[in-house]
Amino acid sequence: MSEQTKKHHSPSYSIYIFVWLFLLVLTGVTVAVAGINLGKMTLAIALLIASIKSYFVLTIFMHLKFEDRMFRIFVFVALFFLAISLILLFSDYSFQ
């Protein structure tokens, strides 16, 4: 496959629809889980589901899966910045 065709590769409509339906299902699961009393796990499960949804939005809808390495590095830098910020933020809240 030439580089040019590789760059312009994108998933078929059926993939988009499948992912969209999957995201809707996950939204339903989030709502359902919110109604169950799981104690401290409630928040963790909601964040886990949100992360899975973000993964699919980034890779499929935002085409990250089909872009070159530089774009993935950019996203990694952003996520790294977010992670470090959260860790440092909780260095305050976790030790109060």
């Binding site: 910020s85 260095s91 305050d92």
Partner: peptide
């Protein structure tokens, strides 16, 4: 420079751990 923000907040009652780290 993105990791030092809480040095503006040393008197607001943060945890001592956070204060030392920042």
């Amino acid at each position: 420079g993105s990791l030092v923000w809480a040095h503006h907040m040393f008197t607001v009652g943060m945890s001592p751990t956070a204060m030392i780290i920042f």
